[in-house]
């Protein structure tokens, strides 16, 4: 409870803030792990489909285990699981990317602009956000998507984004409200800066970490949401994602037949990618919120505390 100051910030004023940021970045194991795992999966999604065979190509050996020609085995109809996995990764990541960008735009507009404008604009935007927040997402997605027989990956992404931006907008609104009353914003207003400039130069840069974590959340949500939707048979038609692979695996009785090579890889990649993004989010949280950062053992170790000091600090905070 006695830890309040951050030594790095007070003693190293001569160093530029960017070197401190880079050093903190490299020291943060969670962030590095998250970036490595996430990056590997993104690379697989980008490059995999270029080198693997056609995912719909049917071979004469159905439902065989990994090995030989097919590194991850084949599906019931003799399609290569590895090729499907590569294309599925690309599809799922595309959904995540589209929803991430749309959520960013929607939540920035309704959260930040509304909170900064104030007055009736804020009231109206906030009411709209809260209504979108309480209207249940997945049932709405199911209802909407059941009316459209041929769905593209774009449509599914747009529907997912429409039902999921509200939470981020609320978080951003809360933080913007506290920012707009800070002294430096008031000072620039007194100095006669234009409102648009205050928003773009004074407020938005301070929101970047929050934006980053909200987008990461949106991407996780979108990829899981799409997988759930596809698993229920309501996903994008005629395209490969991790969700559609699981749907076909379930329908092909992969579970009953013990074809683990069919249903384990897509689920595992989903879980790994989700975990990697969560790790990135944790480290963003720790960077934004020094209270969380200073309380971890890793942070104390980096202050070169000795073993005795560490245990003392632990006692002090118990």
């Amino acid at each position: 409870m006695t830890m309040t100051t951050e030594p790095a910030a007070t003693t190293t004023e001569t160093k530029s803030t960017s070197t401190i940021a880079v050093r903190r970045f490299a020291r943060n194991g969670k962030l590095v792990a998250g970036l490595v795992i996430g990056g590997a999966i993104v690379l697989f999604g980008l490059l995999g489909p270029l080198v693997t065979q056609d995912p719909s190509l049917v071979h004469d050996q159905g439902l065989t285990g990994p090995g030989g020609d097919h590194w991850l085995g084949t599906t019931q109809t003799g399609q290569d699981v590895l090729a499907q996995l590569a294309h599925g990764t690309r599809g799922s990541l595309a959904v995540g990317a589209i929803v991430g960008v749309l959520t960013l735009i929607l939540s920035a507009f309704f959260g930040v602009v509304g909170a900064y404008a104030g007055g009736w604009v804020d009231e109206a935007f906030s009411l709209f956000t809260n209504i979108m927040l309480v209207i249940p997402g997945l049932p709405l997605v199911i209802v909407i998507s059941s009316y459209v027989p041929d769905k593209s990956i774009w449509l599914v992404s747009v529907v997912l984004a429409i039902t999921s931006w509200a939470g981020s907008a609320r978080v951003l609104r809360g933080y913007t409200l506290s920012l707009r009353n800070r002294d430096y914003v008031l000072a620039s207003r007194v100095a006669g800066e234009k409102r648009r400039r205050i928003l773009a130069v004074e407020i938005l840069p301070n929101l970047i970490p929050l934006f980053a974590s909200q987008v990461v959340f949106a991407v996780i949500f979108a990829i899981l949401g799409e997988a759930g939707l596809s698993y229920l048979g309501l996903g994008a038609s005629g395209s490969f994602t991790w969700g559609t692979m699981l749907y076909y695996a379930q329908n092909g009785l992969a579970l009953r037949l013990g074809a683990w090579w069919w249903f384990v890889p897509p689920g595992l990649l989903l879980a790994l990618f989700g975990a990697a993004l969560s790790l990135i989010n944790f480290s963003i949280d720790e960077i934004i919120n020094p209270k969380l950062r200073d309380q971890t053992r890793a942070a104390r170790k980096s202050w070169r505390m000795s073993r005795e000091q560490l245990s003392k600090a632990k006692e002090a905070t118990l």
């Binding site: 899981l224 997988a227 759930g228 698993y231 699981l246 379930q250 579970l255 689920g267 993004l277 969560s278």
Partner: peptide
């Protein structure tokens, strides 16, 4: 949490 729910349930 990052494991998709339905996959965990299936396993």
């Amino acid at each position: 949490q990052s494991v998709p729910y339905f996959w965990l349930a299936l396993i």
